[in-house]
Amino acid sequence: MDGTPEELTTLVGREVYSNNGVFVGEVEDIRLDLDRQTVTGLALGRLNDELFGTRIDPGKGVLLPYRWVRAVGDVILVNDVIERLKHSDEEEESTVVA
C-alpha cells in the first residue's frame, strides 16, 4: 500500500481477524500521522463480544495499533495479541482466591 487516499478508503468496512482466524471487528475509520504520511491505527467497531464484551461498553470501539497488522487483503489479519486479552481474563478468574 503506497498510502494514496483511494487505497486507504478501501480499508474501511473490511473485517479484521487474528492470525488464528478469530473475528476481531470491522474497520470504521483510519488513524493517520499526517506529518509522516503513515497509517498509525485502525478504529474498529462491530467488535467480537467474546473478546471485548467485558472490556468495552456496548456501541464503543477500539483503536488497534497499525503495527499489529500482519496482512491486508480481502480481510485484515492482525497479531494474536487480541486473543491474549481473553485468555488473560480467564487466567485472572482462575487465580482469584476467596
Rank of each mutant, 00 (worst) to 15 (best):
R36G: 00
L34R: 12
R84I: 11
L63I: 15
R70T: 11
Y66W: 13
E92C: 14
H87Q: 08
D89E: 15
D35L: 12
T9W: 05
N48T: 02
E83Q: 12
L32E: 04
T95F: 11
T9E: 11
V12M: 03
L85A: 05
E15T: 10
L42A: 11
V24E: 02
L42F: 08
D2H: 14
L77Y: 12
E50Q: 05
V12F: 03
D74G: 09
E15M: 15
G73D: 03
G3P: 01
N48V: 03
V69C: 02
G21F: 06
E91N: 12
N20M: 09
V62D: 00
W68I: 10
V24S: 07
Q37V: 08
Y66V: 12
R36P: 00
L64C: 05
I56L: 06
A43N: 09
D2R: 15
D2G: 09
G61F: 06
G3I: 07
L47D: 01
G21N: 04
L44C: 01
Q37T: 03
T54D: 03
V39P: 00
I30S: 10
F23T: 05
V97I: 12
R36L: 00
G21E: 01
E15P: 08
T54A: 12
A43M: 09
V72N: 02
G59D: 15
R46C: 00
G41Y: 07
D35Y: 06
H87A: 11
V24T: 07
K60C: 09
D35G: 09
T9A: 05
V81P: 06
V81S: 13
R55F: 12
E50Y: 02
R67K: 04
I30V: 09
G21H: 11
L44A: 00
M1P: 03
P5F: 14
E15K: 15
I30F: 07
L77P: 00
V97D: 14
L8I: 12
N19G: 09
I56P: 04
R31Y: 15
R46Y: 00
A71G: 11
E15N: 12
F23D: 00
V81C: 14
K86Y: 01
R36Q: 00
I30C: 10
N79V: 08
V97A: 14
V72C: 02
D74C: 04
E15R: 15
